[in-house]
């Protein structure tokens, strides 16, 4: 028996919004430690890794490890039927071929359940090595989203240059060129407004705007985003989900032809 409950459907809706543009389907691996999903996007350019800890749920029970392959478009249709302040419970029997989403209104007067067929997905899992990154940047998630959106107008690629003074995002194309420089902040009142750079070595890397913009769909989940970069290895864009876990996106830098 598997049962996971969140007192508020908003978080689950936001999580789905953060992955459904990149992935058509995904396998949710459930164990007593929580729920994990790892999947490459449809074109195998980026990787999404979602971790939701069991202790972050309002109720969590998983008697036996369970892998549930879900069509994320179908899941989105179902979650649209939940009000933001509904309690959502995900339920499945062991070895079941369906999963049930139950939504309960705050006053308990409306209870709805939606059963969805599970899919057998033959997805390969990638082993992600622990890496010490040359540069780790933490910045407001809204600011990162804004920069990715703005620079995508000028080029398919954005160059991220990180030194201890700051981080610079650049794009150039037919229209001209754009540069956005952010300095590390000191003594900001609010932690979520801080820009913090931990640098071992400076890096200059080029990434596809299209994927960075897809990652920023996770912005509503977190005030801050963390970018981890080293030469010649994939960038990690991480959004923490308060008290529940995190979503990480991996994207390899572009290389010279």
């Amino acid at each position: 028996m598997f049962e996971a409950r969140l007192n508020n459907a908003t978080t689950l809706k936001k999580i789905l919004d953060a992955i459904k543009d990149l992935l058509n389907e995904g396998t949710f691996d459930c164990s007593d430690s929580g729920i994990q999903l790892q999947a490459m996007d449809n074109s195998h350019v980026s990787l999404v890794s979602l971790t939701l800890r069991s202790d972050g749920f309002d109720k969590f029970r998983c008697d036996r490890n369970l892998s549930m392959g879900m069509n994320l478009g179908s899941m989105a249709k179902i979650l649209k039927c939940a009000n933001n302040d509904d309690t959502v419970t995900i339920k499945a029997q062991d070895n079941a071929d369906t999963v049930t989403f139950m939504f309960e209104s705050q006053n308990q007067e409306k209870v709805s359940d939606y059963e969805m067929k599970l899919m057998n997905l033959d997805q390969e899992h990638l082993g992600i090595p622990e890496t010490d990154y040359s540069c780790v940047v933490r910045m407001p998630a809204m600011e990162f989203a804004r920069i990715c959106r703005d620079l995508a107008q000028f080029s398919e690629s954005v160059v991220i240059c990180c030194t201890k003074e700051g981080v610079k995002f650049s794009a150039s194309g037919d229209v001209g060129s754009a540069n956005v420089k952010l300095a590390q902040t000191f003594n900001v009142d609010k932690e979520e407004e801080a820009i913090v750079i931990e640098m071992q070595e400076p890096v200059v890397l080029t990434f596809a705007c299209r994927y960075l913009n897809a990652f920023t769909k996770a912005t509503p989940l977190s005030n801050q985003v963390q970018l981890s970069m080293s030469a010649d290895v994939p960038l990690v864009v991480e959004y923490r989900i308060a008290e529940l876990g995190h979503i990480r996106y991996y994207l390899a830098p572009k290389i010279e032809d």
Binding site: M40, H44, V45, S46, L47, E124, H125, L126, G127, I128, P129, S157, T206, A208, V233, P234, Y250, L251, A252, K254, I255, E256, D257
Partner: peptide, 13 residues
């Protein structure tokens, strides 16, 4: 510039 696949950076488990 070329965009490598993410799979080429991580090992298949």
């Amino acid at each position: 510039m070329a965009q490598p696949s993410i799979a080429s950076y991580f090992n298949t488990r």
